[in-house]
Design a protein around this nucleic acid. Sequence first.
DNA 1: ATAGTTAATGTACACATGTTCAATATCTTA
DNA 2: TAAGATATTGAACATGTGTACATTAACTAT
Lengths: 192, 192
Amino acid sequence: MKQDLRILKTQESLRHALLTLLKTKPLESITIAELCRLAKINRGTFYSHYKNVHDVFKHYLEVIVEDFRHAYEEPYHKTNFHIQHIEADMIKIFHHVKKYQDFYQIIFDERIPMMYYYQLFDTVRSFMQMSIDDSYLELDKSIKVDYLISYQTNAILGILIEWHRQGYETSIQELNQQLITILSINSPFRKM
Amino acid sequence: MKQDLRILKTQESLRHALLTLLKTKPLESITIAELCRLAKINRGTFYSHYKNVHDVFKHYLEVIVEDFRHAYEEPYHKTNFHIQHIEADMIKIFHHVKKYQDFYQIIFDERIPMMYYYQLFDTVRSFMQMSIDDSYLELDKSIKVDYLISYQTNAILGILIEWHRQGYETSIQELNQQLITILSINSPFRKM
DNA sequence: ATAGTTAATGTACACATGTTCAATATCTTA
DNA sequence: TAAGATATTGAACATGTGTACATTAACTAT
């Protein structure tokens, strides 16, 4: 059973139209009607593929997250956990966000729904989980690991929020240096 | 110059109508037209007070944040920084969120814009800044304090996100115990 | 109590949203 | 390539959005 070409064409037209519009106006001000006019798609057809404009944007974030996972899951990750690896892990996050800065500027925008933040959160969290699993094997039994992981994950995202607010002016190298300093103060990943 | 009573009446009607509607449906599905019908306010009048439904909701969050600041700024804060104080500080955040759980359930909803998250972030961040100012006076000169503070702040919010996702089932006492454990692992506020 | 100010109302308009349905066009598979 | 399946279109409808403006109502200050 082949994928129907009409569906592909419709979705690609809409996605392409969104990218085009994003060059000239913010995501929140793009209407479904506008998107359909540009894509030359009947507005009724839109609703059989997407619920709203965010639904179209979501596709790109999924591609981006997939690229993120790829960059993250490299061979050395099979090795055991070291503090050096955390540095390497996090600098990858910074590189990733910088690479897709145009998108992350949208995602961190105050008018945009939390869903994108949560998608990033979940991705970073799954990486953090792998690190924690490796390094905190003999954790205090009283700790609920979920809270620890969400704490650590969101801490990293806090750096991204700060980066965003400062207009992504801090260089990746500087950012990494800051993180190393913060971690050396907090030592969240020191051997136990 | 007195505040015009008509303005107060209009705004209070709209705010009251919003609270009423929130009992039966999610914020994102409440329309301006609906709000105005219930409040018996002409829809045109709405726009001379608010830009959208979120603008009306924002008022409540401001009241809530004000209450938060009050609860936070108590006498003992004049004393010097101790790890015990951080515990006390953070358990206040948990109490606060629990007190206004109905609102925070909305704020952390994935459909809701980031602006509310940022408002909470900024509030907690200002508290964190006070703590950092007290305790990290002789910080490594190479650190950009903004990144450190945003890191610490968002870490705490990470716990709130996890709390939200688990349906606020964890008790405040348990949450506080978790935080103490996490802090004792990470020691982010230990004396330097 | 009144004059002057200003907020609220009612109406209208152009456009967006979300849904429905019959007619048409385009695909897939045999 | 023809038949059957299904996606797209166009049209219509009720409702929401954002804005404008003349009219009416309510308020403040004197």
